[in-house]
């Protein structure tokens, strides 16, 4: 009997190879976008295929090659293969179509890097303008936070499963939150809770200016009553609004925390570990070799 890989072993094995994607892309100096797309293709491929059917090495290269094309960073197959050891053009081109098929022909991938940049801009708008909200936070602080959050994404989001479980903006916020909880939380509070008194006033004024649009202007007689009613309605409305705002904020923070937890669960895979699995995988991919080996051994025993 061939001993097949357990799902855990397969996962460990794939984690090891996911890291190689990043190395490969860095080697070719490919943009982040390509790196992330390649990693996403690779993960999606093995949602429907097994390492025991397709060995990850060439699938990995194929994903990188296809992602580069899909992200407009074309590299010819010759120069691609020349740089890789032990891989021929045909290996990759034969697999390209199979990979595309496994992806169900879906090539567009949304990554957290773009929303991260968006948050970087909005952090500046919310925390620095018109005047700084936190005495120790400047453009430089935020720029630094942004850079470290990018590193966080590279380290935790590319290889973990979070991209299957959270939206790109949620992952981006998780990166910000885990990098600097104090600043990110302040941003979220300002965004969702309108924490400052000044801001509260703004809301109130805004509410009064546009009275509840649902209350249709009734006939003139009831208009006077309407005004009184409207005022109290605006008040309770306001409370409800504050309440839902708080709920939104809390839900979001809970989501972000969950995202951080999952992103950090990935254990680094050691080379030894994956070598061990690689051996097992070899026979699963080439059952005939195992049979031959057994026959040989049997033949020897008979002698």
């Amino acid at each position: 009997m061939i001993s097949l890989l357990t799902p855990e072993e397969e996962a460990t094995y794939l984690d090891f190879y996911s890291n190689n994607i990043i190395k490969t892309c860095n080697f070719f100096k490919m943009p982040t976008q390509v790196k992330l797309t390649a990693a996403s293709f690779f993960k999606k491929f093995y949602l429907v295929n097994s390492v025991m059917e397709y060995h990850p090495k060439n699938i990995l290269y194929t994903c990188v090659f296809l992602a580069a094309k899909s992200e407009n960073y074309f590299i010819s197959i010759d120069s691609f293969v020349r740089a890789l050891q032990g891989t021929e053009a045909a290996h990759i081109l034969d697999l390209e179509f199979i990979v595309l098929q496994s992806l169900k022909f879906t090539l567009l991938v949304h990554h957290p890097v773009r929303p991260l940049y968006g948050f970087f801009l909005d952090f500046q708008a919310v925390l620095l303008h018109p005047e700084p909200v936190m005495y120790d936070v400047s453009v430089d602080t935020l720029g630094n936070l942004y850079n470290r959050a990018k590193d966080w994404l590279n380290e935790h989001a590319v290889t973990s499963d979070v991209t299957f479980l959270f939206t790109p903006p949620q992952i981006a916020l998780a990166a910000m939150y885990d990098t600097d909880k104090r600043i990110t939380d302040r941003y979220l509070k300002r965004k969702f809770l309108k924490e400052d008194k000044e801001k509260l006033n703004v809301i109130k004024e805004g509410d009064e200016e546009q009275p509840d649009q649902n209350t249709e202007p009734q006939n003139e007689e009831s208009e006077k009553q309407g005004v009184v009613k409207e005022e109290s309605e605006t008040n309770s409305h306001h409370n409800i609004k504050l309440h839902t705002q708080r709920e939104h904020y809390e839900t979001l923070v809970r989501t972000i925390r969950k995202c951080i937890k999952i992103a950090k669960e990935v254990k680094p895979t050691t080379r030894e570990e994956s070598k061990e699995i690689d051996k097992k995988c070899f026979f699963a991919l080439n059952p005939k070799k195992l049979i031959d080996k057994r026959i040989k051994r049997l033949a020897l025993e008979e002698k």
Partner: peptide, 22 residues
């Protein structure tokens, strides 16, 4: 057509699939 281009699947074909899917 696949397999006739030196560099695998054609870029325009990939673009067409990529965006029309969305």
């Amino acid at each position: 057509k696949t397999g006739i281009f030196k560099d695998g699947l054609d870029m325009s074909a990939l673009r067409e699939v990529k965006y029309l899917q969305e």
